[in-house]
């Protein structure tokens, strides 16, 4: 890749990631949410991977990091669902807003998202979905880039 791209892409990818974070955080008010924001953050990571390559990319995503983050995202979603189940009897019940008034106020306050709308657990669900999507989409590209070096193992170059 050209030098101009190599200088430009790292700061641009950070701006893309910040915008992805903003999309995740506004999922309960504006168009967007966990999947869209996670995909935007993954796009920033992929941008770096494509331009710098797997070895020279400034973002080093190890296997353990990706596995841990994806697991944390999935477990966070399940935890929020089970918290609703145990506290109210409904899986994924929105404990923060508590529209049926069946949850003690202390639990309702604990799960309430502190912003202007008090959307309850919805922003937290967006957050954990964003983590999971970010890692999942990045892992696909990292796997493809990593498999590129072993092309000769699978393709007979004499036939091409």
């Amino acid at each position: 890749m050209s030098t101009i791209l190599k200088i430009f892409v790292f700061p641009a990818s950070i701006i893309m990631m910040c915008y992805g974070a903003l999309t995740i955080l506004g999922g309960h008010i504006t168009p967007g949410g966990g999947f869209q924001g996670g995909a935007m953050i993954a796009a920033g990571l992929i941008f770096c991977l494509v331009v710098y390559g797997l070895d020279e990319s400034p973002f080093k995503l190890s296997h353990n990091f990706m596995a841990g983050l994806e697991s944390a995202g999935a477990l966070g979603y399940v935890f929020l669902g089970l918290a609703g189940l145990f506290a109210s009897g409904f899986f994924l019940y929105n404990l923060g807003t508590d529209i049926y008034h069946i949850v003690p106020p202390a639990i309702s306050t604990l799960f309430n998202y502190p912003d202007a709308l008090h959307a309850g657990i919805i922003p937290y669900l967006n957050f954990v979905v964003g983590l999971k999507v970010m890692v999942g989409l990045s892992a696909v590209v990292i796997a493809f880039l990593g498999a590129k070096g072993t092309k000769e193992d699978y393709v007979d170059t004499k036939e091409i």
Binding site: I24, I41, P58, K60, A116, F127, L131
Partner: peptide
């Protein structure tokens, strides 16, 4: 509103730790 501040910081922190 501290909600977006805290969650945004956590997302950024996770990404920032990967810059090497």
């Amino acid at each position: 509103y501290i909600g977006p501040l805290v969650l945004g910081f956590i997302i950024g922190f996770i990404l920032g730790t990967r810059i090497k």
